[in-house]
Design a protein around this nucleic acid. Structure first.
Lengths: 257, 257
DNA sequence: TACTCATGACTGGTATACAATATGCCAGGA
DNA sequence: TCCTGGCATATTGTATACCAGTCATGAGTA
């Protein structure tokens, strides 16, 4: 009755990407469609609201003040020009990801992580990225690894104090790239949220020149291990690099809590 | 305007316990109140629907048939005796966790993992659990580790074929306990979903006696490493044990895809 | 017979209305 | 002055109504 079977389509029908729009007409009009690429197939309001809210939250400097930051469903819905429903669905997801807390009949509050929680986040990140490093030594191409080295071309001789900001960006990109090169979607998805959380506390953890210098040395050692395809060593270096940050936070991040 | 700040209360206002309302009465009538429990903070319909749906999905033997399994929002709402709204919110969360896929205007489908995806899940699990093993060697009590050993008291001499089912349960419990003993909430939460996914394919991966025997040997070695507080060795054993399962799936799990 | 195409039922997405509850304020009494 | 209790208000939780795609069906035609 209500259970007729249907072909359920990959969400975005990405397979619609044709090999060659005109080509030798070999695959002729299989690809006739005007290559109307994206038109962003289906960002529903829910997804748009989710993305907008997540960006807004991550961009906040929530650790500057200790006042509770409250979000208003109805106001946000008005600002976005949509109804509460998609906003609520986005909020529900953000709650499950640990960015906000929904208190019934009270309000929605942006979550501020405690020091202990930040350490837990970094530890989990260490687990994911060190596994990613293992996988890279086994499956990544030499060219992909070379890309990592190129990132640090301008910093190789130590982080110029004036470039600390720029370095911070490269730093994050480096770690994200490692995760991405693992080609393991589960790792990638899990790490993405961890990164989002860490971006929020980044403003507080950067700016110390000697840490940046040591960080670059660590990164170079990691790249060398990856190039040498030293699985165990790459894992160890990545893990210890991340856990080193955890230690640093444990000792010096008194602004948390 | 709409942003007056309010004390946002930890959910249950646990802090309501005052030091002493009157004072000189020492601790006397501190306990005078009938000790009313917080009246069980009522789980919203959304949470109930989420739990019910997740249980239902995990309990399904979705890999038995290849037909698409479709869920009907309206019908489920009727069966639960609630409206579509909380059901939808539950579905949205289940989608973000990879259990269902919402296809606009088409339907909601239970996700069947491909072989590649299962391997990715297991690999991510290896990353999390091996980190948990590290943490255990550093922080868990001897008693907690002893609990692990007790789990296998009845299996130590090899898995009786008749007990394979029972062993399968203990097996899962063993791994969940390792994660839990890490005391890292991020690891625990991430792993929970991975376990849920793996429970779904468990029916297909168990039942091979020699694998069970080797599994027990692995587990014993892991316990010994934990007892000896050998951080690196514990990590390595846990990781290789999990990756061994990944290999096994890669080679023999042709029923996937 | 085979194919086209209009039609209508069905489904998830969105908007809106209603219900439940936590909080603040104020009047009234001891 | 301080406490108590009820009411107004604010805010989320839930239900319902409506909208826009999607697909199956079957009549009509070559």
């Amino acid at each position: 009755m209500s259970n007729r079977s249907r072909p359920p389509h990959r969400v975005n029908a990405r397979a619609r990407n044709r090999p060659s729009p005109v080509g030798a007409q070999v695959a002729s009009n299989v690809a006739r469609q005007p290559a109307l690429d994206p038109i962003d197939a289906s960002p529903s309001f829910k997804h748009k609201a989710y993305a907008a809210l997540k960006n807004a939250i991550v961009a906040m400097d929530i650790y500057r003040s200790r006042d509770d930051i409250r979000l208003d469903e109805r106001k946000l819905a008005q600002d976005f020009g949509i109804s509460r429903t998609p906003v609520r669905e986005a909020m529900a997801q953000l709650e499950s990801e640990g960015f906000v807390r929904l208190v019934p009949r009270r309000g929605i509050y942006v979550v501020r992580k405690t020091k202990r929680e930040v350490i837990e986040l970094i530890t989990a990140w260490a687990a994911l990225e060190s596994m990613a490093a293992r996988l890279i030594t086994q499956t990544a191409s030499a060219e992909e690894i070379a890309g990592l080295r190129r990132m640090f071309a301008t910093f190789e001789r130590g982080a110029d104090a004036a470039k600390l900001d720029e370095y911070s960006e490269v730093n994050i990109e480096f770690h994200q790239t490692i995760i991405r090169l693992s080609r393991n979607k589960v790792l990638i998805d899990m790490a993405e949220n961890l990164f989002a959380h860490m971006r929020m506390i980044r403003r507080k953890t950067i700016g110390e020149k000697d840490r940046a210098d040591r960080s670059i040395q660590d990164h170079m050692a990691i790249i060398e291990a990856l190039e040498a395809r030293s699985t165990d060593r790459a894992e160890e270096l990545v893990r210890d690099h991340a856990l080193g940050l955890a230690d640093h936070v444990a000792r010096f991040a008194d602004y948390l809590d």
